[in-house]
Simulated scan of single mutants.
Amino acid sequence: MDQKTILVAFGGASPEHEVSVITSHQAIAALQESNYSITPLYLTKNGRWLTGETLLDLKNFEDLKKLEDSCTPCTFGQNEFGQPVLLEQKTGFFSKPKTTPIFAVIDGFHGSKGENGAFQGACEMFNIPCTGSGVMGSAIGMDKVMAKTICRANEIPVAESVDFFEPDWVDHQSTLITKIESLEYPVIVKPVHLGSSIGVEVVMNQESLIRAVEAAFKYDDHLLVETVITPLMEINCSVLGSSRAQRTSVCERPIGKEELLSFQDKYLNDAEAKGMASADREIPAKIPDELTKAIQETSVKVFKLLSCSGLARLDFLVNEETHQFYFNEINTIPGSFSFYLWKESGISFTDLLLELIDIAVEDQNQKARRIQSYDTNLLSQKAVKGIKGLKSKK
């Protein structure tokens, strides 16, 4: 019996491109002993879709030009039976394109079009089960302002903030600075649609604020400036499930050289390609049981509110003295799939990925059970004549 094929999709046009490559290769390694056949789907930094055996070796990514030249362009398609397939470009004039039926996709993108719902939409168009949240949950989760607006409306505490687009900053800089300074320094500047602490900076005065805003606009046209919680303790919790059922991991406390965890702290503390697994952290977090329970319950509430599915990591800002906590952000595709949190809960990385695949398949089956079309005579001869009549009146 042929093995079912799982695509592991990663890369993409994102500042987090390299982080995505590491996360996805961790997943590929964890699935080597599974009953699935693994096929890589790599999106280059300029948006090309590629596949090929050379993508399975992380060392080959040291020379991207050479790697890309060794790969085969591909896209989604359907075979004669209506099954979704990975369609590889023809290699010869008389050759037929190779087609590989797709059982499911493991989405390993971080940031931009792979995590914001765009890639998830492509999978939905071809009826391909895709791990993680769907179009809406992914889009909301990627937008810090929208996610916090929904949380605030549902009485989930978030830090006070000001957000603005680049044209607003150009036209009304002094007004925005006044609004920001009403929060009182220090404040933290963040791109709205990025993760991994890229473009994030704590500022102490107006001069550093202007510099940080100009730097962050290099990554995103929408920025968020928030009051800094101090003394700060970051606490994260992962949620696994769907709209049908959810469960939480243990909580973790990331530990960096500064209060704010940087890209360096998250990904560059270890010479090996361990991604988020290399970051320093305290697991389980040494916090009171009642605080752990409150954060876990809030994590599930946010997961459901934002229409998430699969696996997500939710990050909270906690006042270390009062234990008042604030929702910071949700990562619908967390670095290393947060397997280190679930390992502490007794679930191996391989089993975690297999469960994510099962959830994705069941989510797709649930959609397929719904009515997909509505019988109507709208294109009957009478209706078509009516449309022609409208054209003649122009």
Rank of each mutant, 00 (worst) to 15 (best):
Q78A: 07
T91K: 14
S37Q: 14
L64H: 07
A29W: 04
K66W: 06
S34I: 08
D69W: 04
F81Y: 13
K96Q: 00
H25I: 06
G47V: 08
T54C: 11
T91G: 15
K66G: 07
C74Q: 00
W49D: 12
T72N: 02
K90L: 03
L86A: 02
A30M: 01
E62I: 13
T99K: 04
E53Y: 05
K65S: 13
F81L: 14
L50E: 07
L56E: 06
G77Y: 03
Y36R: 10
Q32I: 09
Q83I: 12
T91E: 13
W49G: 12
D63P: 05
T44M: 08
L56A: 07
G92T: 05
Q26V: 03
Q83C: 15
D57R: 09
T91S: 15
F81C: 12
R48G: 07
L43R: 09
D57N: 14
L87N: 00
L86P: 07
V85L: 04
Q78F: 10
I38V: 15
E53L: 07
L58E: 06
H25G: 05
G77M: 02
G82C: 08
L56R: 08
L86C: 06
T54H: 13
K65L: 12
W49H: 13
E68Q: 10
E33P: 10
L50F: 07
I28C: 09
Q83D: 14
F94V: 00
L64V: 11
Q32Y: 11
P40I: 06
V85A: 03
L41N: 01
Q78E: 11
F93E: 05
S37N: 14
K45I: 09
R48C: 11
P84M: 08
E88W: 00
P84I: 08
G77I: 03
F76R: 05
Q83K: 14
L50M: 12
S95I: 02
P97H: 02
Q83G: 13
Y42W: 12
V85R: 01
K98T: 01
L50W: 04
K45R: 15
Y36L: 11
Y42P: 03
L67I: 03
I38G: 14
S70I: 02
F76I: 02
G77T: 03
E80N: 10
E33L: 13
S70K: 04
L67F: 04
L64F: 10
F61T: 11
S37W: 15
F81H: 14
P97Q: 02
K66S: 13
T72F: 00
S70G: 00
L56K: 11
I28S: 06
L58A: 08
P84Y: 05
E68M: 05
G47R: 13
P40C: 13
N79D: 13
K66L: 12
L67R: 05
G52V: 02
L64R: 08
T51A: 01
Q89L: 11
T99M: 06
Q78V: 11
L31P: 10
K90G: 02
P73D: 04
P73S: 02
F94E: 01
S24N: 15
S34C: 09
N79V: 01
